[in-house]
Every structure is written in structure tokens, then in C-alpha cells.
Amino acid sequence: MGAYLSVPSWVRNLDSRYRFVLGECTECGGYTFPPEGACVECNAVGTLEPVEPAGTGEVVAQTVIESGAPPEFAALLDAQGAIGVVLVELDEGARVPGMLTDCDPREVARGDRVESVVRRIYEQEGIVRYGAKFRPEP
């Protein structure tokens, strides 16, 4: 049991799941993630053109979850003891949420540089969902 995301709803966003594909607004030039709906900068609708980001950026907020993980991440929390979650300002401009991987999450702080990497996110209905996480830039 966990947050229910149907397989179609996961698959239709794979470009953004794997590579954080963003929307650039033809109206104001702002960036929106994911590239659907209204522009987060100017609220224009139908103005988002997909942009392939480099996948690198800066941590603007960080937390380490030590208890209370939702069921879909409970096994991960048990295995790791902690889950690092960050908001990252991508170099292109949009802000995205992501999980930390390949590091001690307590060592990552606001202001640090990170890069995205594809990892296993979770499993639901017998299907493993993959997507992007963040790790410190080498």
C-alpha cells in the first residue's frame, strides 16, 4: 500500500521522471516543472515548450527523513536508516524535488551542487518504477 500512481500516469511523464525535462514559457521565459499546466512564473496556459536540462543544480532546501516514511518508502528507510530529500534549483531555472542517493544525506546541505542520476524509485503492483535522484557533484 502506498501513494497510488497508476502505471500509465508514471509512463506518460517518463522524460521528466528520468531527466527532469522542464517547460520553458514562451510568454515570460520562466521554467516550470513538470512541463504541463500553467507556467509557475506567469500563470500563462499552453505556453510551455519542453527543455532538456543538464540535470545539475544547487540544493535550496534539504531534509533527512528519519521516521514516518510513507509505506512505499518504508523498506528503503529501514535499509538506509534515513532518506535525504532535497529541493534543487536546476541550472536552467526550475525548482524540482528529489531524493538523495549514493551519499550520506546528512553530509549534503543547502548550497551544495548536485547532479541527477537514474535509480530505482519504488515498486507498486509488481512493477518497479525508475526515475531520477540526486547525488553530490564529483
Binding site: L5, P34, A61, T63
Partner: peptide, 16 residues
């Protein structure tokens, strides 16, 4: 679809 799938919790969002 996105925030929760980053592994965060209700407390995690306010922690940010």
C-alpha cells in the same frame, strides 16, 4: 506525483 515520489513526508515538506 512528484513531491511525494521524492520520498518526502508531510514533516519533510515543512522541514524544507
Amino acid at each position: 506525483e512528484w513531491e511525494r515520489m521524492a520520498g518526502t513526508t508531510f514533516a519533510g515538506v515543512y522541514a524544507h
